[in-house]
Design a protein around this nucleic acid. Structure first.
Lengths: 166, 166
DNA sequence: ACATTTTTTACGAATTTCGAAAAAAACATT
DNA sequence: AATGTTTTTTTCGAAATTCGTAAAAAATGT
């Protein structure tokens, strides 16, 4: 599901303009290049060239962020898994196939794999755990945490310059 | 950070066309309306009206999905928190203020709050835990899981019709 | 069956995107 | 420092997309 980060011919480090472009786009992914250009006081051509390059380099993608609630996905969960030694990759790849699953990662700590998924109902969640997870060879234990309330959920982690911690 | 889902005047249920529009947009958030129109064999005006309505209703937003690695955010973590009774909301809101934090939710299960965050380095992560989390009144314990590998990370959970589980 | 409301289509005008050549800037070499 | 080379930015006309809006069509209610 996720391409290994193969190195493209040689990717230059993002400069200030690139970061500014990303910051503007994370507010509104469909703002016209002409407007970004105005805001940053460069030509539309520059914005276009930069964005083309950034996409080329896989720095970002244009997507949409749906609100799960509005889609009827009222139940969200984070599930920590313990896997049998050697089957982690297989399990992760199987999990990734479900459209309900929006995140899968391998972790150090209590759980080998952690996944995040959305469901229409508690029933669907239970079905997922009991019918689907149990079918995947190599899962030893599943630790389900049910989401009660969501406070933040975004891809907006582009920061001007390395001020991640505020 | 996240607006409570206040009810808009009355929101109609999404129909098949809406879902198809969302499915197309989650592949490429910047595909022209004219092309969506062609694919779905309706007029551009319809696509435009539908999308305007969906945005209005808060069903989705146009955003970008940056690759944390390419942004130099090489360290990702999921942190489970135990909070003092009554301070959960405050803690969650404080956490949401950090740009490094991309997800915060309240959960049933082992941890009251679970958050997901990106950092440039292990050092930055440690600083976050030791300097920032410790400053937030009401956090009793933090359980850090370091991401070793990411298999899937997407907002693409729009499904044609309730086939979340495959 | 008819009136009312909602949704879709149609179409010209405004705006944006695109391709590509020229200009400017950045870089390297001597 | 001057010169050649490469990269990036600007420019600008053509093509495509978006936008506003009026008319047509479809859906809804009585």
């Amino acid at each position: 599901m996720y391409g290994g980060s193969q190195k493209i011919v040689s990717m230059k480090k993002l400069d200030h303009v690139d970061k500014q472009i990303l910051q503007i786009l994370q507010e509104d992914g469909r703002i016209p290049y002409t407007e970004i250009a105005q805001q940053l006081r460069v030509s539309e051509g520059t914005i276009r060239a930069r964005i083309t390059q950034l996409l080329q380099d896989g720095v970002f993608q244009f997507v949409i962020h749906p609100d799960p609630e509005k889609l009827g996905l009222h139940v969200q969960a984070i599930i920590g898994l313990t896997t049998k030694l050697g089957s982690q990759k297989y399990v992760a790849e199987e999990l990734s196939k479900f459209s309900a699953v929006r995140f899968v990662g391998s972790f150090s700590g209590k759980h080998d794999l952690i996944l995040q998924a959305c469901f229409h109902s508690n029933d669907e969640l239970i079905t997922f755990v009991n019918e689907r997870l149990s079918q995947i060879e190599g899962i030893v234990a599943a630790d389900v945490s049910l989401e009660l309330k969501q406070y933040k959920d975004s891809f907006s982690f582009v920061q001007d310059d390395d001020v991640t911690l505020q």
